[in-house]
């Protein structure tokens, strides 16, 4: 009896430790965003919440018209994604490929299947005062009740906002508000503020579905728009000098 009871107690203690371990590894104080997500519907052209074309200033409208005309002819050279460059923000959040979210109390990590790109969102920190501009910028975040607010700055102007080629400048400032909907989807309300490109800040909404448990991301290696993981051409084809 005593042996059985102590075994039960040990089992219960082990179970408690496991639960404690998992809880400690996650972030019990906030909604659980952990998992792999994919946009519910591919976003081909970002629109405002009421379905309008974003409020482009006249010079930017001309740039956008040029991009649309290029895309109509199959020329996507305005979008660095075709050259394996990072898509920029918020473009990377619109691509219809899996996004892994790792959640910790001090940071949220967005790991994109798209060319293995990462975005690190440190929580309750300030943007560094002196930081190089980059495609994906610098992101910091905080929880506003059940909503994760992510603030991204310090982006270069070499990417486009969305696959349709909406332009932006290096004054771009992106604020994302992530929350779980009642249906279990992840909703991202993205506000774009760029006074050199848009007449006023505007907001779009993107939703994501959780991929089934056990889903594994692929190693995606971009090469001139082709997925290496799907069709690896032989390296020798490039030629080796001296051989």
């Amino acid at each position: 009896m005593r042996t059985a009871a102590s075994r039960l107690a040990a089992l219960a203690a082990a179970a408690l430790m496991m639960v404690g371990g998992v809880a400690a590894a996650q972030d019990p104080a906030h909604p659980n965003l952990m998992g792999i997500w994919k946009v519910t519907r591919p976003v081909t052209a970002a629109k405002t919440i009421d379905g309008r074309i974003p409020p482009l200033l006249p010079p930017a409208r001309a740039v956008y018209a040029k991009h649309l005309a290029m895309a109509a002819k199959g020329d996507r050279s305005f979008d660095g994604v075709s050259d394996c460059l990072p898509p920029g923000m918020p473009h990377i959040q619109l691509i219809a490929k899996p996004i892994e979210i790792l959640q910790k109390p001090t940071a949220i990590f967005f790991n994109y299947q798209e060319n293995r790109l990462p975005r690190r969102v440190y929580l309750n920190e300030q943007h560094p005062a002196d930081w190089d501009v980059s495609y994906l910028g610098d992101s910091v975040g905080h929880w506003d009740d059940d909503t994760l607010v992510v603030d991204t700055t310090t982006m270069n102007d070499r990417s486009v906002l969305d696959p349709s080629g909406l332009p932006h400048s290096d004054k771009l400032h992106v604020v994302e508000r992530f929350r779980l909907t009642k249906a279990g989807r992840l909703e991202n309300r993205i506000t774009v503020d760029d006074p050199k490109t848009y007449a006023r800040p505007w907001t779009m909404v993107v939703r994501y579905d959780r991929m089934p448990a056990g889903y594994r991301l692929q190693e995606e290696v971009c090469r001139a728009g082709a997925l290496e993981s799907e069709a690896p051409p032989p390296l020798a084809a490039k030629g080796k000098p001296g051989h």
Binding site: Q26, M34, L102, F109, N111
Partner: peptide
């Protein structure tokens, strides 16, 4: 290195 349930990720 990030540790989450069932996974260790090295960024």
């Amino acid at each position: 290195i990030v540790e989450t349930p069932g996974q260790v990720t090295i960024l």
